[in-house]
Design a protein around this nucleic acid. Sequence first.
RNA 1: GGUUCCGUAGCUCAGUUGGAUAGAGCAACAGCCUUCUAAGCUGUGGGUCGCGCGUUCGAGUCGCGCCGGAAUCACCA
Length: 595
Amino acid sequence: MEIILKDKIRDAIKFLYNSNLTDDLIQLQETRKDFKGDFTLIVFPLLRFSKNTPEQTGENIGNYLVSNFKAVTGYNVIKGFLNLEISDEWWVDYFMRLSAEKNLFKNCQSADPWVVLVEYSSPNTNKPLHLGHIRNNLLGFSLYRILSACGHKVIKTNIVNDRGIHICKSMLAWQKYGEGETPQSSGIKGDHLVGKYYVRFEQELKTQVDDLISTGMNEADARNAAPLMQEAREMLLRWEAGETELVDLWKKMNSWVYDGFDETYKMLGVDFDKIYYESDTYIIGRNIVLSALQNNLLYRNNDSSIWADLTSEGLDQKLLLRSDGTAVYMTQDLGTAVARYNDFGFDKTIYVVGNEQNYHFQVLKSLLKKMGYKFADGLIHFSYGMVELPEGRMKSREGTIVDADDLIKEMKDTARIVSLELGKLSEYNEEEKEDIFRKIGLGALKYFILKVDPRKNMTFNPVESIDFNGNTGPFIQYTYARIKSVFRKADQMGIIHDNSVITQAKPGKKEIELIKLLRKFSNTVAEAAYGYSPAVVANYCYELAREYNQFYHDFSILGEENEALRNFRLALSGVASEVLASGMWLLGIEMPERM
RNA sequence: GGUUCCGUAGCUCAGUUGGAUAGAGCAACAGCCUUCUAAGCUGUGGGUCGCGCGUUCGAGUCGCGCCGGAAUCACCA
């Protein structure tokens, strides 16, 4: 519509003022609800052609359009705004085309599809996933869905940080205090079991550190000097040397963790096409650094550590290999990036990583450029804000970490309690009910996280956030279930849904409003893909669900006497449910047929 | 101190490439279930969009300067 309308407006200016308009001067937008009309042309930019008042210019253009374009039935001018009224027939016709369209994402197909690699999750193998990981996983998975919907080829990857001192701490504590405990013997989920020994290590270390401090040592030195810490370091060296027994233990404990993660990922509904391990990529990274050193892109310090000088780009000196030749975080990420490019040859690679690492990715990008990797231009750090609790940041020392598994279970339990109170599901068996509770509980959690702008830090109140009313996932799911229920009822009543009579319907204001909202959907997805923002999709779904609920209350659908209008409303409901389901699909949220 | 990000109602958050009178939900109060799902709907109250200056016909949105908060600036990852 806009395109045709813009053409007509261009004609109008040509005819009235004998001037040719460039596209950016035609500012056309949807008319605000409180004004009469469907589309609004902002006439201020056109005054230079008309050399007239805004009001008169608007009048002239409006007049021209009404007499030369059938779909425009009227207009009004308020200050510099020309509100154009589009005929109901046009809207009904538009809706017919929309409801016939099976692919709701058709309008946002990218003309130039990318191969795009999305990295998300990136766990450490020494403890279970927590609330921060949940935001990461949900964002990453939703980005995958959004970009896929727009026609890009997306590869989901996960980089597992499976090496380093942290995993040695868990291994050491398990050796010392574990007495052979396994997930099977204890019934504890593997990642939680390994996390338990990581915590145990820190506890034991603390008593040693406290003892040393009481002898007059300062804290930093005490941590270094503590026997446990020294043992852990020594273990890391033995691991890097490839000591068989130790590598076997490492493999065993990591496999416990992966089993645990798999369960959590499955509950969250996320998955990966390819998993990378830093225990592999750090070696690649080291080779890259060494060859860059040979090409004089890096320099070696007196103590034989290797550095990059990025001061010319406003960055700092960056360490790439320690004096003992071992790799640092950046070394691994260089290796991972190159390995991935060799595997997939991507156009873009999106790192879903918290904003605490903004500097790291700035450095990574300029390092890759410096080393001559052209793909560095397609490197995007999707930087998201921290999840905080009402009392501030999550702190492991204070035991305020919100565990992912616990949280998921809590959401499901709350969904169960609320559902049973409302008592709508009495006719379903236990299995069916559990499936619905799961969808609702996870829907609430996912929506709560995804509806906020990823860039911003967000507050998660474990008590208040579990709300199923208002701008929440369950509200949107409820709207969907309600529409499904209308169709079930229609079937029972033998009402046959026939689109062919719709063109005879005389729609009211509300029906047109709904069509306009449905129309915005594909624009929204394109915008979301461009801005990499699930939040845009989420808030749009809410807007539509809210609008539909008002519609639902204002109108009788099945009870409507007029057949054409009844079919129209049914069709509107049907498309609304599809759009809601599609939108929530982009967020990775499942929709229950009833709740 | 350098860099980056954030600041909108009591709370949690929206706010389209700069557009008209800044919106939801929660919380508070008042209504609506013999009618297609009340996880809903309607209404009331609640704002110096951190502060100032600038650009513009027009600024919550763009620029500059302050104020406040967060992150980061490791031979940690």
